[in-house]
Amino acid sequence: MTTSEGGGVVPALTAGDLVGAVPGLADTGIAVDVVNFRSRPGASLTFADLADLARSVHQAAADTSGIIITQGTDTLEETAYYLHLLHTGPQPIIVTGAMRNPTLAGPDGPANLLAATRVAASPHARDRGALVVMADEIHAADRVRKAHSVSTQAFTSPNGGPLGYVVEGEPRFLSHTAPRHAVPTPVRQPRVGLYTATLGDDATYLSATAAHFDGLVIAGFGVGHVPDTWVSTLTALAQQIPVVLASRIGAGPVLTSTYGFPGSERDLTERGLIPAGFLDPYKARILLHLTLAAGANAQETAAAFRAVAYPGEPWPWPQQPATNAPTA
């Protein structure tokens, strides 16, 4: 982003501009090939954009040690998880951005790009899929989320914390990554909705909007609860399309067997809703989108969520990365 004639900042800098503004990058000895893929605000990205990006990443991966994606932070966490689910190679995909644009004092973009470059070139980052590098922290794509609108420390991983840090220019991994799963290449673009539970909602709007979707994620209260007035609507929907139950909290899991009242997580899963485990609603929507985009049936979709929620459960497709992540 940089200043526009009409006021405010807009995406106008090229990838070469970004790389050229990084102090110390040449001193690392890391060769960086620059590609201008697309120039759009993060808020305007579409699944079609990400599908094109994933194809470009796949084509370029064999000739690189790692790949860095720079984008606006609005949808950065969703891009990272999307690429993570489609990437089967050992090369790390590092997604990074900036919270403070270059027109402000102390922009963080150059530092984030330098850290991302060091992580992308590190042998310790291989076989970990997509990672997010911001503020010298290394986050797993399936955990990270933007938790502050303006802070340079905006990105956190509530479930498990960062995988590691960039310390004195060296990536240091302290934690394991979860087993990697690869969704087959998309063959269509389904419409997947996200509906959040709020106090007093009687499901009128849920009923009106759900008919337009091929799949739906419900961001429920707490451990996966909704108002009892939703039960009949969700029961009917779950017989027609995959309906995934996540928590609007963004940290902690959806439960499956603790509460038993109408609209509780146990009641809803018995009615056919698919629990999202530790995935927050935004990542659950990405996983649901990609499973449906790959042509998955209801059983394969449910199996994919079980495998992500419970390591050791069988993954429904044979396509897998060659190796899992190394130990920390």
Rank of each mutant, 00 (worst) to 15 (best):
P275L: 03
L255Y: 10
P227H: 12
P262H: 08
I218F: 08
L237R: 09
A276M: 04
V243H: 05
R248F: 10
F221D: 00
R266V: 03
G272W: 07
V226G: 09
Y205K: 12
G250N: 06
S207Y: 00
D202Y: 13
G200S: 15
T269I: 14
G272N: 06
V244K: 08
L273F: 12
D201M: 05
Q239N: 06
G224H: 05
L199N: 09
T233F: 08
A210G: 12
G252V: 05
A197L: 08
D228V: 01
P227S: 13
G222P: 00
G260R: 07
L216V: 09
V231Q: 08
Q239R: 11
S264Y: 01
V231H: 05
R266H: 14
E265Y: 10
S207C: 01
A246S: 15
L273V: 05
I218R: 02
V244P: 09
T209C: 11
A238R: 04
D201K: 00
R271H: 10
F261T: 13
G250C: 08
A219K: 04
D201T: 00
S247D: 07
R248A: 03
G220T: 01
L199W: 11
L273Q: 07
H225Q: 15
G250W: 05
V243W: 06
H225K: 12
T235P: 00
T235A: 11
G220R: 04
G272M: 02
L245D: 09
L206M: 14
A203I: 01
Y205L: 15
H225R: 12
T229N: 13
H212K: 07
L255G: 13
G250M: 04
L255V: 02
P262V: 08
L255R: 11
A208S: 14
L268G: 07
G263W: 13
A236G: 10
V226C: 03
R266L: 14
G222Y: 04
F213D: 12
A208L: 15
P242V: 03
L199V: 15
G215H: 08
Y259H: 09
V231S: 09
S207I: 12
G220E: 04
V231W: 05
T198F: 10
D267T: 07
L255P: 01
V254E: 05
S247T: 14
A276H: 02
W230A: 06
R248Y: 08
I249V: 15
G263C: 10
T229H: 11
L255N: 07
A219S: 14
T209I: 15
G200D: 12
S264F: 04
T256K: 01
L255Q: 10
A238K: 00
V217P: 01
E265I: 11
I249E: 07
S264C: 02
T258R: 11
V244C: 07
G222R: 12
Y259R: 00
I218T: 07
Q239P: 00
H225C: 12
D228T: 02
W230C: 04
A276V: 02
G263E: 14
L245F: 04
T229D: 15
P227A: 15
G224C: 12
A246F: 13
